[in-house]
Every structure is written in structure tokens, then in C-alpha cells.
């Protein structure tokens, strides 16, 4: 599969751009966190497309963003649980 480039994204409408980035990010994230891949991908897609492209090109920055997202999700789930139990 050829790498996703800025020009490929620029040729697509905004909604399609997020879809293209998501389809590339999801498998990479799923290999690390299968159970949370959908939510982590959804979180990362809210980041600017140019930064997402950089992350697709650099596994280290992608991994650190994924770990950040996992930490945020876990805090979010804890606060959700505490809301429910109140």
C-alpha cells in the first residue's frame, strides 16, 4: 500500500480526508491496542491532518501519541464510572 501523501489528502474533501487517515491509522493502533483501537483512532482523528500525516511517517511519534490517548481514555473512563456511581 503506497504511503498517504499530503497531495492525496488535498485532492479529497475534508470528510474523506479524515476517513483516509483513519483507515491508515486504525490497523497500526489495532496492532497495539485491539480493544481500544476504535476509540483511540477516533481521538487521534481530532488532531490536525498535517500532524496525523507526520505521525504516519514516524512510528515513534505515532506510538507516543497512542500512549497519550490511552492514558486520556483511561482517565475518561474512570471519570465516567465515578459519574455513574454518584
Amino acid at each position: 500500500q503506497e504511503p498517504l501523501t499530503a497531495s492525496m489528502l488535498a485532492a479529497a474533501p475534508p470528510q474523506e480526508q479524515k476517513q483516509m487517515l483513519g483507515e491508515r491509522l486504525y490497523p497500526l493502533i489495532h496492532s497495539l491496542h485491539p480493544s481500544m483501537a476504535g476509540k483511540i483512532t477516533g481521538m487521534l482523528l481530532e488532531i490536525d491532518n498535517s500532524e496525523l500525516l507526520l505521525m504516519l511517517e514516524s512510528p515513534e511519534s505515532l506510538h507516543s501519541k497512542i500512549e497519550e490517548a490511552v492514558a486520556v481514555l483511561q482517565v475518561h473512563q474512570i471519570s465516567e464510572a465515578s459519574h455513574k456511581s454518584n
Binding site: 483513519g22 483507515e23 476504535g38 481530532e46 475518561h76 465516567e80
Partner: peptide, 26 residues
């Protein structure tokens, strides 16, 4: 409000249109 945070983050599923798009200001 609690309701919006329950659906956050908008989950991505391969092959399905991602629902998070409209929330992002262009």
C-alpha cells in the same frame, strides 16, 4: 453535560464513515 462525554471520543470503525467530523471546526 454528561450526555456528550458518553459518546466521546467518536469511535472510528474501518469501512464506516467516521462520526466525529462535524465536531471539528474547519
Amino acid at each position: 453535560n454528561g450526555s456528550s462525554s458518553v459518546n466521546w471520543p467518536p469511535e472510528f470503525r474501518p469501512g464506516e464513515p467516521w462520526k466525529g467530523y462535524p465536531n471539528i471546526d474547519p
